[in-house]
């Protein structure tokens, strides 16, 4: 490829895309999902995961899960040494099927929320979170 200005920019941009791609789900993530769903198919639908696009520090990342009909929601951090984060079970007196917490992310990665709905089906939502490195050595 001849290096023209345009090509160089394209190259730079594609390198950025590759570098910015979230880490693919690991085997342990798949295992955790399978254990939760019992191998059932996971679709899309009644589950929302809210997480910052850029987290200022991976030690404390605020997230929220929300659904209309979930009985249980599992959160996984696919790029952590162990992906499990938390599982929320909603009881009879839960006014909504939503909850917020603060989590640890080992680096830039996908956070996944999988909900078991009242009808027994499973849905999932994914959020890519960029974890920044601090100014002076963290």
């Amino acid at each position: 490829m001849e290096l023209t200005r345009r090509n160089a920019i394209l190259l730079g941009a594609s390198a950025l895309l590759v570098a910015g791609l979230p880490i693919h789900a690991t085997a342990s993530t798949d295992d955790a999902i399978a254990a939760f769903t019992g191998g059932a198919e996971v679709g899309e639908g009644d589950i929302t995961l809210t997480a910052p696009e850029i987290a200022e520090n991976g030690n404390t990342v605020p997230i929220e899960v929300s659904s209309e009909t979930a009985v249980e929601i599992m959160v996984l951090a696919t790029g952590n040494p162990t992906p499990a984060v938390a599982t929320f079970k909603f009881g009879k007196l839960a006014a909504s099927r939503s909850a917020s917490t603060r989590i640890r992310l080992a680096g830039t990665q996908d956070v996944v929320a999988i909900a078991k709905l009242e009808d027994g089906s499973f849905v999932q939502a994914t959020s890519a979170v960029k974890v920044t490195i601090g100014g002076c050595g963290g």
Binding site: V61, A77, N80, F88, K89, L93, A99, T101, R102, I103
Partner: peptide, 17 residues
């Protein structure tokens, strides 16, 4: 009566919220 029952893993931040 139960409201929520949450399982926490080590990825929950210090001072769980």
């Amino acid at each position: 009566e139960n409201v929520v029952d949450i399982t926490l893993e080590p990825a929950i931040s210090t001072n769980p919220y």
